Amino acid sequence: MAEAHPPKRTEKLQLMLDDLEMAAIDDWRFANRMPSRAAAIRELIRLGLETAPMLEETPVDKASTDFRIVDPDQAKDG
């Protein structure tokens, strides 16, 4: 009997990150021994979708740049 294979990934997603955001992802990747940056990002998205509550209010008045992985002001303090 043939093994079932997961569907082939055919969609690309372009995402712009600053140095602090990339460092946070890379730190998480290495701490969790993920095989690649892409695998780490997919796992973080999966975890977020699985554990995050639904938004009570849709942030319609926010720009894309308002959504950050790392708050630069908190990174300076820490």
Rank of each mutant, 00 (worst) to 15 (best):
K12W: 00
A31S: 11
R68P: 04
M1Y: 09
P7F: 00
P7M: 00
I69A: 02
K12Q: 09
M34G: 01
F67M: 12
N32A: 05
D77R: 13
R9Q: 09
P53D: 09
K8L: 15
Q74K: 11
D77T: 10
V70T: 01
A4L: 11
V60A: 14
D26S: 08
K12G: 07
P53G: 09
D71Q: 01
D27H: 11
E50R: 11
R42N: 13
L15W: 00
D66T: 00
D77L: 13
E3F: 12
I41W: 03
V60R: 13
L44A: 08
D73M: 04
D71W: 04
I45W: 06
L17Q: 02
I69H: 02
E11D: 09
A24D: 02
K8F: 09
A31C: 06
D27P: 06
V70A: 01
R29V: 00
R37F: 14
E56T: 11
V70P: 00
R9P: 06
A75Q: 06
L15I: 15
A52W: 00
M22D: 08
R9Y: 03
A31H: 08
T58Q: 13
D73I: 03
E11M: 04
H5I: 06
P35R: 14
D61P: 01
A63E: 08
L15E: 02
I45R: 07
T51Q: 14
A31P: 05
A38Y: 14
R68A: 07
E11I: 10
E50S: 15
D71T: 01
K8V: 14
A39S: 15
L55T: 04
M16G: 13
E3M: 10
Q14L: 11
I41Y: 02
I69G: 02
R42Q: 14
I45T: 06
L44I: 06
R46Y: 09
R29C: 12
